[in-house]
Design a protein around this nucleic acid. Structure first.
Ligand SMILES: [Mn+2]
Ligand SMILES: [Mn+2]
Ligand SMILES: [Zn+2]
Ligand SMILES: [Zn+2]
Lengths: 146, 146
DNA sequence: TATCTAAACGCAATAGTATTGCATTTAGAT
DNA sequence: ATCTAAATGCAATACTATTGCGTTTAGATA
């Protein structure tokens, strides 16, 4: 995570700074989307400090570099685990435990573009989030309902 | 739009109030997502006034009744044009003119659920937004590039 | 039509989120 | 070691969202 981020930053001509690495580290540990202010609090607990403006700017850059994604409906950011694979990156979100699963699927993209094409809409990218229960939470629900 | 909203409010045991009708009216006219504060401004221009808290509450209700949708990535609300059709309601968003096209597609939902199922994720609903150019903006782009 | 009450609204206070301009610091090139 | 464009911190400001509570009102009932 960190290593890859450093590489990407470097390769794209962006400086490798402490704030950037700190945010990357937080995202790497987080198991669910985190907001800029949440990141600030988490750093604070480590005795570190970053201005919230800096965090906003870092997150913006990380998204630009596809190292992170913004999940608007969750009001938070999450690290990208797919790399620069083709197609759009999609998410499954467990609304019980908050866990996120990132995935990509070309067929799905083609489907959506096809439907759009039928009414003359030219798709450039997709935002796609599935909400439900992850396998472990689903099992928990079943157990609870006995 | 208004008539249908009145019916739904009534049928569900919610009062038909002036604030609710005013917000419905604004959503009906808007050609793109509008935020609560934008709605307040638009009403102001008509010489009307609603407290922003009221607008928040009305929008929450309208979404609950499927008369409107929140578009998180656009930070705004839009009226629903599909009614209570089965499946999730999806959107195509032109990032040039801001126009929105709502649609639904069962096949797409099945596809997504299928993919989720493969990793044990149990989907309950989808958030889906396609970004690109609507047909008229696309034509405009082509013309401009000559 | 008048009365009544739960539901809805307005207001005020407060909290949380986001953006901008500018001075200072610093990564990394030379 | 020096230099400079890039990045950060700070301060001010604007925008967005939530809560509690007193007042008003839609619409049911008589
Ligand atoms: Mn990704
Ligand atoms: Mn709809
Ligand atoms: Zn879960
Ligand atoms: Zn357009």
């Amino acid at each position: 995570m960190i290593r890859n981020s450093i590489q990407v930053l470097h390769a794209q001509g962006y400086k490798v700074t402490r704030p950037r690495l700190q945010v990357v580290e937080i995202l790497g540990k987080a198991q669910k989307p985190v907001s800029p202010y949440e990141i600030q609090k988490m750093l604070k607990q480590q005795g570190r400090y970053l201005n919230h403006v800096t965090i906003y700017r870092v997150l913006e850059l990380l998204c630009h570099l596809n190292l992170a994604h913004k999940l608007p409906s969750e009001k938070g950011f999450i690290k990208c685990i797919l790399g620069n694979r083709e197609g759009c990156h999609r998410f499954m979100i467990c609304h019980k435990c908050g866990a996120i699963q990132e995935y990509a699927d070309d067929k799905l993209c083609r489907n959506e573009k096809e439907i759009a094409g039928e009414i003359g809409f030219h798709t450039q990218y997709h935002v796609s989030e599935s909400y439900g229960l992850c396998s472990s939470c689903y099992k928990g629900e079943l157990a609870g309902n006995v």
